[in-house]
Design a protein around this nucleic acid. Sequence first.
RNA 1: GCUCCGAUGGUGUAGUCCGGCCAAGCAUACCGGCCUUUCAAGCCGGCGACCCGGGUCCAAAUCCCGGUCGGAGCACCA
Length: 504
Amino acid sequence: MHSVVEDLNSRDREEIIREAETRFPEILHKMKKEQEHTLPDLPGDHRDVVMRLAPSPSGPLHLGHTRMAILNDEYVRRYSGTLILRIEDTNPGNIDPEAYRMIPEDLESLGVKVHKIVIQSSRLDLYYSEARSLIEKGFVYICTCERETAKRYKAEMKACPHRNTGVEENMEMFEKMVSGEIKAGEASAVVKTSLDDPNPSLRDWIAFRISPHRHPLVGDRYVLFPTMNFSVAVDDHHLKLTHVVRGRDQLNNTYRQRFIFRYNNWKEPYYFHYGMISYPGTLLKTSLMKKGIREGKYKGWDDVRLLTVRSLIRRGYRPETFRKYWVDSGLRDVDATFSWEIFDSINRGFVDQTAMRLFFVRDPVKIRIEGAPEMEAKIPFHPSRPDLGKREYRIGVNQHVYIQQSDMNGMSEGDTVRLKDLCNVTFHNGLFHYSEGQELLRRGSIIHWCPENSSSYRVEKPDGTVDSGLIEPLGKDITGVVQMERYGYVNSFPEKGIGYYTHR
RNA sequence: GCUCCGAUGGUGUAGUCCGGCCAAGCAUACCGGCCUUUCAAGCCGGCGACCCGGGUCCAAAUCCCGGUCGGAGCACCA
């Protein structure tokens, strides 16, 4: 047997294939396998899977959040588990009260099913009691060093003077922090890890600090707040999380949170950290978006220029698109670049089947078709869906129609073009003359048009520009994603005479 | 600087754990053709990749070592 392998390895591929063809033709038949991309199975027990989405309420969700939302939702659906939306509002200085409402809305519009909502600021007593228990075990101490001093100690791998304070005193100090007797910046509660950890971010990290800001929900009652690493660890345990799927930027946080699990002898969930996605040239920082809105640069969170979930949905991106894109991307831990090309192509696939075709004439130019008889245009609403019917217009003798300025600019003396589904016209001496022919013209010479009684319409585009023009009369009855012929897909709100540009 | 992670076509990915079915699959983009009274969609065909250098092995995208490049973190943000 071995010698056969050696023999084959040493021989030429071509030669082997030639021999195989003659001797065993059937084995060369290679089936083309269909590849539907699916997420890998998660390890561990698949009964009672509990996962969570843990955004901070600093604003609505944006494109960057959609991956964690979709991925967690996908797995919970697969295992019939429970998905918890945990709003991480333990930093009072960074809360937009509107976000408590907007985040669930955004998730719903993405088709993410949340089974339970947990708000961390309503669980502060739980965090306090876990803190007391860790103080008692000597894993948490109260530090009154100045911020810079504490940083220096850590950088030098040295213990600060408070690291060995006794349990009693720590407990006493902690209660003073809870009660508000100690002011912001004067003390913090620190988790004792190891000072010589080679990873500097894991050395004695802060678990609680007193906030100088008033918390919008519980501001009258609480001033002491846990940092995310503490509240996350406590909640992941108390909410019985089985699997945690999040970005690689959280990796060091996971290491920090593990100390809490270890000190309490809690069973850890399985952790997954997918790679970072870079979104070239786009603004995905909630704080910057908020600033822009405050300054009047953007109209609101759903401004077409912003990549918030609400804006993308309003532009006509379908929830299935987000889902397919992120499932296709998988759980890889490699960093990648977001591809609008692929994202748009996926969306086009979903939207095209149902998008009614309409004429939108940008920068309209009024023309008359010299010598034209009374005409009737019957234009399919969808070229491959006859069941959707036709739009019909009657163009009387001497009535005007509108064509696009850019098409007008392209006309040269003697050119014949076709007004789509209406008639051929020849450009002569600056006028358009009716032309008998109905024959199909060469590609590129069919232009769209609008009848006289069209309505004015504008399309807002994500680059901040606006195209103004006319939409054909029947367009005012069609809401939702439509395809403006020779223009692109638009989510149309005809009652307002406006559409939001989806993509080409 | 320190810690941790990663590297497959222009882009997004499959395969890597457990080496042989990988002569590397799929999608997107691009090119050509078909269809079409939209520059859309659809159909057919084509182009195009295992970061570099060593090693182990009959056999390496896959395992080991070194290098290079890229990313995340090193906040009393999440």
